[in-house]
Amino acid sequence: MTTHTPQHDGTSLGLSGVALADGVGAAFTSRSGGVSAAPFDSLNLGGAVGDDPEAVRENRARVETALGLPPGRTVWMRQVHGADVRVVDDVPAGTPEVDALVTTVPGLALAVLVADCAPVLLADPVARVVGAAHSGRPGTAAGVVPALVRSMVERGADPSRIRAAIGPAVCGECYEVPEAMRDEVAAVVPAARATTRAGTPALDIRAGIAAQLAGEGVTDVRTDPRCTLETPGLFSYRRDGRTGRFAGYVWLAGDAG
């Protein structure tokens, strides 16, 4: 595959910066500004969806450049829809099979891949600890975000200081599920219970996550209102089936020591 690599800024890549906290960088990507061919066009960052690995590497490098991140200093996950958290102080040799990451190392970015599930970014700017979680239906029911908050607290974070950003995800008016599935999730996360515009059973994952954060004492929460299924500029598995992944990034500003 032949590509060219001009300098890219956040606008050309369609990045959405998040003002999470002083000394903390955070952003959500879109699907524009990359080199992947259809159906992954064009800024696919997922390495396990069938896209050309060279295209994925190029796309990831473009995002690092646009965000001002050190090349190759982003930690990715092999997301398994669970609630395990990994604390990292460097880029691991292999991709950890977890759904949440925590670091206290400046310049080390944490990334979460999504295409309908919710990307969740957390930061305590005083304790200098950040975290990222992949929270879809199974992960939300399993409590991956509360587990992430607790892991951050173990490293000095205070829930009253933690600031959270819940990124684009399929909305409660679109995420239709069988009634039994809705009841199963709502039994552990009542705030996730929803109804579609057509009046059928649904789940509002972002509302559920916000309630989980509040339950852990995290009240400074901002939510990106975009629904992935309704937004052509974002990847959506429920809409398109075979498709790419966009990402949420969070990192502590400064150079790694």
Rank of each mutant, 00 (worst) to 15 (best):
T2Y: 10
T3Y: 14
P6Y: 12
T11G: 00
G23L: 04
V24G: 01
A27K: 09
A27G: 03
F28T: 08
F28I: 06
V35F: 04
A37E: 14
N44Q: 11
G50C: 15
G50T: 13
V56T: 15
E64G: 04
L69D: 11
L69V: 13
P70A: 15
P70H: 14
P71H: 13
T74R: 03
V75C: 08
R78V: 00
Q79D: 01
H81Y: 12
H81L: 02
R86Y: 02
R86D: 01
D89G: 15
A93G: 09
E97M: 00
D99S: 08
L101T: 12
T104K: 08
A111V: 07
L113Y: 00
V114H: 02
A115H: 01
L121F: 05
L122T: 10
A123I: 06
R128S: 14
V130F: 13
G131F: 06
A133Q: 09
H134Q: 11
H134S: 13
P138Y: 06
G139H: 10
G143T: 08
V144D: 02
V145E: 10
P146I: 11
A147P: 07
R150M: 09
R150I: 00
M152S: 12
G156W: 09
D158M: 05
P159G: 14
I166L: 15
G167S: 07
A169N: 04
G172V: 11
G172C: 12
C174L: 10
Y175S: 10
D183T: 12
A192I: 15
A198K: 13
G199R: 08
T200A: 14
D220E: 07
P232W: 09
Y237F: 15
Y237T: 14
G241D: 00
A247V: 08
G254W: 11
D255M: 05
A256W: 06
A256L: 09
